[in-house]
Simulated assay, not measured.
Amino acid sequence: MTTTPTRTVIRVADRHDIPALTATLVEAFVDTPDAVWLIPDPGERRRVYQRLCPAILTHAMTSGTVYTSGDHAGAAVWLPHTAAGNPDPHHTALIDRIAGQHAPRFARLAAVLHHHTPHRPHTYLAYLGVAPDRQRHGLGTALLTHRHATCDTAGTPVHLVATTTDARRLYQQHGYYDTTPTPVHLPDGGPPLWPMWRQPHTRSRGTAPGRGRP
């Protein structure tokens, strides 16, 4: 458990946190450009996301780690690169059932993400979501900083895919850089995505973080 200078407590989430975190993630992601591409109708999109987010959280708590704040206003979903590069077929089938008629779009998004997953070992930030009324107040930074400390100590790089320009700027402030020369666009005129990578930061004086190829 970590407490930031602003007294934000970050801890590992468990199954008892799923209802509260579902509400947070739905509000954080339901109107992002990739979500609109996946499900154009806003009412249908919200209904699907209300079923989708608990499934994602449950899977991540088994295959990886979910961190949250004391008030459940934010969540960071982390997976090992093996889980990101080799999706669980049972989880994929569950997502297909939840998505229903929209499953082909979810499959196309998953294929794009898989194509841009680096092969070298890393940890994968699958989702970083903060409730809209708590955004730009340092909670996303607190969630990132908490995990980065562990990654830096272990020498573990991080991979993620930013889905908005605001998210990309936040990640750049924390040492991430683009791994493609131009954004990756989803099919059929879909929105841009930015695959990104962060090298572990060393504590040695005068040593800059590396930018090894992912």
Rank of each mutant, 00 (worst) to 15 (best):
D133S: 08
L109M: 15
V48A: 06
R198G: 02
D31A: 04
D188I: 07
T150R: 06
R45M: 12
T8K: 01
I39K: 06
I95V: 13
A142Y: 00
Y67L: 14
R7P: 05
G206L: 09
H146I: 01
R105N: 13
A131D: 10
P5I: 03
D178N: 13
Y49H: 09
A73M: 07
V48S: 00
T156I: 14
P118H: 08
R108L: 08
V66Q: 04
Y127D: 01
D188G: 05
R203G: 14
H159W: 11
V36M: 09
G206T: 02
Y127F: 15
A75M: 07
R51V: 01
L94N: 10
A20G: 01
T202E: 12
Y67T: 14
D14M: 02
A107G: 10
M61I: 11
G43C: 09
L52Y: 14
G189M: 06
P132D: 10
H72T: 05
Y176T: 03
T123S: 10
A13V: 09
I39H: 11
W78H: 05
H116G: 02
T182P: 03
V26P: 01
R136A: 11
N86Y: 01
A149G: 10
A84D: 01
R169C: 09
P157H: 06
T153P: 03
A35H: 05
T32V: 03
L109V: 03
A149K: 13
T92C: 01
G70A: 14
A23G: 00
T58L: 01
Q199K: 03
P89W: 04
L57I: 03
D96A: 15
T92P: 03
L79Q: 10
V130D: 01
H201C: 02
I56W: 00
W37Y: 07
M61P: 04
D133H: 14
T156Q: 14
R97K: 09
G74A: 13
R15F: 02
V158T: 12
Q101M: 01
L128F: 12
T117E: 14
P118D: 07
V26K: 11
P118W: 09
L170I: 07
V9L: 15
P192N: 11
R97W: 00
T3G: 00
R15M: 07
Y177A: 12
A76T: 10
R108D: 09
T202W: 08
A107C: 06
R198S: 08
G43K: 11
L94T: 15
M196A: 06
P195H: 10
